[in-house]
Every structure is written in C-alpha cells, then in structure tokens.
Design a protein around this nucleic acid. Structure first.
Ligand SMILES: [Mn+2]
Ligand SMILES: [Mn+2]
Ligand SMILES: [Mn+2]
Ligand SMILES: [Mn+2]
Lengths: 230, 230
DNA sequence: ATTAATCTTTAGATTTGTCTAAATTTTATT
DNA sequence: AATAAAATTTAGACAAATCTAAAGATTAAT
C-alpha cells in the first residue's frame, strides 16, 4: 500500500509526538503540522480506515503496529537524506531539514537501500538522531538533557531537540553543534539560565529554553536515557 | 514563483514534445501524460494564467520564454539525478527514469547546484541526453539516427529515443547501451530491419522500430544533427 | 459547399486536503 | 452536581486536479 505526502507527514508527526512522551492530542498534532484541529480529525479518519491508526472519536489515538512501521520507514529516509546532504553535499547541519522533508517522500524502496549502502550504513543523522535500519531498529543513544547534567562534568552534545531555523541559527552563533564538548559551571535559579564552558572558548551563559533542547552523552560513563527528537 | 508537481510535469512534457518537432496538440499532450484531453485543457488555462504558456483556445499553444526557462530547470534536475543514480548509487541506466521523475520536483535550488558540483558538472545523462547548465544552456551533440547511418561505418551509441522499460529491457538483452560501438552491415528493404555488428559480438539483426530509437556519434567526423529525447 | 470526422473545449461531478463556524463531548471548576 | 472551559468533531464550503459526457470549432472528404 502507498500513501500520499500528506498522509506520510501526519504519520511521521504522530510518531514523533508519541516519542516525546504522554498522550498525543488533536490540538498537539494540529500545531505540530501547522494546520487546524478540524483538518486533523479528517485525516485521523482516513488513517484509521487504512489501519495505520487506532482511533475512537473523542477517545484519542495512537499508531498501529503497521502505522509505526510506516513511520519508521519515513524517519529512516529523512535521516539518511540528511546524512547525505551534510556529509556528501556539504550542506550545513542547519540547512538540511526542510530539504529532507521533501526527499523523505520519494517512494522507491530500492533507492533507500542503495543510498544507505552508499553512505556505509550510518547510525546517526547530523542532528545526533538515530537512523532506523530497514527493519525499523535503531540504536538508543544514552543521553541526558543539559538541564539535568551535573556540574563540572564534561559531556558531548549528541542531539538537539528541534530543527527550527531559529534554534540552529542560535547554536551556530554560540559554536555549539553535535560533538561539541562542554560542562555546566553554574545554574541560576532566578531564570534557570546556565553558565557553561565549551572547550576552547571562554565560559558564557545560555537560557533555559536553549538548554532544554540540548541532549548530551557524558564523557565518562553514561547515566540517564533521554528522549529523542526529529 | 513556485509550481505544483502536476504543473511541472505538464511544462516538461510540453517542452519535450516541442523538441520532437512540429506543433504540439492537446491530444498529443494528453497521451504523453496518460491523461484525458479535457484535463489538459484545464491545465493549459492554468499555465497561461501563470504566463508560462502562449495559448488561445482552439489555436494551439507553446511555452513562453519563462515556461521554457522553467522546463529547462526541471530537465536539468531530472538528468542530474539520473546521473547521480547511475554513477554514484550504481543503478542500471534502465532503472532510473521513474525515480528521477519524482526527484526532479524537489524544490531547493541550492540542492541542484550542490549536486551538480558534487558530480563535477556532468554534460550528459546516462541516456546520452545533454544536461542543461544553470542558465539552461547545453551541448548539442552531433548525432545520427541509426536508420540514417551509412553502411560499414563504425559509430558510438550516444542517446536513446525513449525511456520505456520495454525498450531498455530489449537494449540490455542485445548488449546495446550508451557508448556501444557498432556498424550497420546491411539494410533489408522488405521490413526495414538492419543487420548490425556490435564490437566483440557476432552480427545480429534489429527491427526498424528499435533502430529508430538509437542515435549515434560517428567515430571519425560528425555528420547530421539529430533530435534528442528525455 | 455541404457533410463527416476529428479535435478541443465546456459543463458538471468526484476525490483529496484544507478551512471556518457551529455543535458535541469531555474535563475542570465552582 | 451543576456549570464553565477546553478539546474535539461535524457540517458545509472551497481550491486543485482529475474524470465523463456533451457541445462547439476546425479540418478533411465528398
Ligand atoms: Mn515531509
Ligand atoms: Mn535530523
Ligand atoms: Mn515528474
Ligand atoms: Mn535521461
């Protein structure tokens, strides 16, 4: 069975919202997809009819096994293309999300496998997010949110929690990217801002909002398992 | 201005039919796009409104300068992706047309230029068709139709006149591809079939229909200028 | 120059995905 | 438990792209 671009975007968004914990609501999904709740309800019915979604009106919804399988296939394509764009075509990691948003809908299954092979089966995309294999399996990276990192403990940035241009612009300005090693020097309770030290740079401070989007892998011995983003 | 996938497919088809000489008709375009004449008329109005087409009802139509510019941009993307699929991802030259039919609609102009650069600015796609540069200019390869090739004169296959799976399957069976060197030994007037000799193979015969789809570059000194395909 | 055949366009319907506004259901608050 | 607020769904409309059937225009044949 094949799906429209719109159906695929809905499936992928539902998958991502489900990963971010809790229950997914019609309103959440509408705001994620920049559309209206009424449009979401229409699509929920369509996806239920195609057996991709468990859905009872007013009772909420969740991806079926088949829906999850489809979602992972799209996520796989999205992240493989992002990897290609950054590591082969030399795009910046902050420039590829929108393009991959289109490329993920190219239908040829052969293309995905040839691309995966060409790239030597990468395990993580340029934002630190794991790339599902052909069976939907992927490595779960042990990572901690910057907010939860203990003081003076060096850790390596392994993922960012959003792909918004605004966030990626800010990260570029502060010289923070996947692989950046940093430590938290101080936490300020007034505004929950953090004073951090990036290797080879003088210490500087970052806002709570920014800290919340950064996930890190402690350099010596992992701790918590964090959530992942796109 | 940006265009829908459907609009782009119409523009590209009109461009190709115009290249193949004569006037383009509503019926031609409908059969090329596997749709109905009534649908074509609807789209012609839309393209005229967007100033891509010169069109007067019942009087025929042709691409405007802007329409031609847009068409060449899509052709450029199509052929660059085909080149990538064959030369980087190791697809067969007979497997890439349908995939490129989707990839040609990815909108990022930056992507096209990075891809072109990555591939070192190829001048011809895997079917021997010239790749337009960013300004729409391309090399016009001097080529002769196999039908018009003089006897016992070796020539190199440089383009095929269609991308149909059926044709490409036949060519694979007969070990003919872009770059194949062959000569015509004999022409039979009864059915216009040709006895040809491919280098390193014993002579064999091919039908008129097949011969018409093959374009060649004579090995010593070019002659006629032939038409091109997708 | 009529008539016939062909080509092209219009009229009206359908599907997909979206919207606004109103109705319904659930949840939270008094 | 009644009421207010919030979330969700339905009803009805619309644009894009397509279709069938019928009408209109052009071209070819008598
Ligand atoms: Mn997408
Ligand atoms: Mn990513
Ligand atoms: Mn196409
Ligand atoms: Mn080609």
């Amino acid at each position: 069975m094949s799906f429209t671009e719109s159906e695929e975007n809905y499936i992928k968004s539902i998958y991502h919202l489900q990963q971010q914990g809790e229950v997914v609501s019609t309103n959440d999904l509408a705001s994620e997809l920049q559309t209206k709740p009424a449009s979401v309800t229409d699509m929920l019915k369509k996806l239920k009819a195609k057996k991709l979604l468990n859905y009872e009106r007013y009772k909420g919804f969740s991806l079926s096994d088949e829906g999850t399988r489809v979602a992972l296939g799209i996520v796989r394509k999205h992240r493989l293309w992002e990897y290609f764009l950054v590591h082969e075509l030399e795009f910046g990691w902050d420039e590829v999300h929108e393009i991959a948003e289109e490329l993920e809908h190219i239908s040829s299954p052969q293309l995905v496998e040839k691309l995966d092979n060409y790239l030597s089966h990468p395990k993580f995309d340029p934002h630190g997010d794991p790339i599902p294999d052909i069976n939907g399996r992927m490595e779960l990276r042990k990572q901690v949110n910057l907010i939860d990192l203990q003081l003076n403990c060096e850790a390596e940035v392994s993922a960012v929690g959003s792909q918004s241009t605004e966030l990626l612009e800010l990260l570029k300005h502060k010289n923070i990217g996947i692989g950046t090693v940093l430590a938290v020097l101080k936490k300020f309770t007034f505004d929950n801002s953090l004073e951090i030290k990036v290797r080879d740079f003088p210490p500087f401070s970052i806002s709570q909002q920014l800290a919340q989007t950064l996930f890190l892998k402690p350099l010596y011995g992992a701790t918590t398992v964090g959530s992942i983003s796109k």
